[in-house]
Design a protein around this nucleic acid. Structure first.
Lengths: 137, 137
DNA sequence: CAGAATCCCGAGCGATACTG
DNA sequence: CAGTATCGCTCGGGATTCTG
């Protein structure tokens, strides 16, 4: 945790590369991961394939349009696969690709971190807000 | 990687809790992590404390306003500490808190994932776009 | 059922000007 | 130097409508 080695400047960890401009993939993936619905979709597809309508039912509050564009983005990035069954009525199944599955594993670490520290965060916010109230008074 | 155990429904990993509504911290932290500048700030403060003007100089393209609100958010969440030195001209140092440092460790995993897979993603996008072009023709 | 197209509003963010 | 305050614009995303 307090490993001093983590503070060394390593060649494979240049902060500048997180920049938005140029060919920075990190920013793009981060935007994808963090956009409003992608995370839910990825999590739901973790170990099952789902149809459009099933996803829509599971993800409370998502609009038809946003589910559509979210899936299109994830498909384009190779994170989700789209399978059309030529039947009537049309049936389309979505599933995580192997690549998408590895991303999900990584994301879980972040979710776990949040769960582990949400109490600390809540306390920090309360303390901060209390300080601000004092200022006003 | 293909560990079937990772597909089990565990009590501490309910996807529904990632929802925006209710007291969901994951969404809030994710929004913080993913917003346009927080990540850069956290990365730059990893092993050093920096002044406002230093951060501004390091982070190419950030406006004074956005650096300010970003730091205020990070401070409120207990991720960054703010130290005012009562001198003229005023001097304020920002540094990562222990909590912020653990978050940075977690974020690094995501950055590493992106670096490891950005070629696959690029290829997936190229393939997708090629498919779309065929449609139009 | 799955989704593309259109319209529209409000949050996010940049630019600018001002302050302790 | 280290901010805050105000204005204005862009664009993400919701509601609605239309198609294969």
């Amino acid at each position: 945790m307090d490993d001093p080695a983590s503070c060394e400047t390593t060649d494979d960890y240049d902060v500048r590369q997180w920049d938005t401009r140029e060919g920075c993939e990190v920013r793009q993936i981060l935007d994808r991961v963090a956009d409003k619905w992608s995370l839910l979709v990825i999590a739901l597809l973790d170990c099952q394939s789902l149809r459009f309508s099933e996803l829509r039912r599971e993800i409370d509050g998502v609009s038809q349009r946003m589910l559509s564009v979210t899936l299109r983005h994830l498909e384009r990035d190779g994170l989700v696969s789209r399978t059309v069954h030529p039947v009537v009525p049309p049936r389309v199944d979505y599933a995580l690709t192997p690549l998408g599955r590895t991303l999900h594993e990584t994301i879980k670490a972040l979710v776990t971190w949040t769960e582990d520290h949400q109490r600390e965060i809540a306390e920090a916010r309360a303390a901060y807000d209390r300080g601000r109230e004092m200022m006003d008074a």
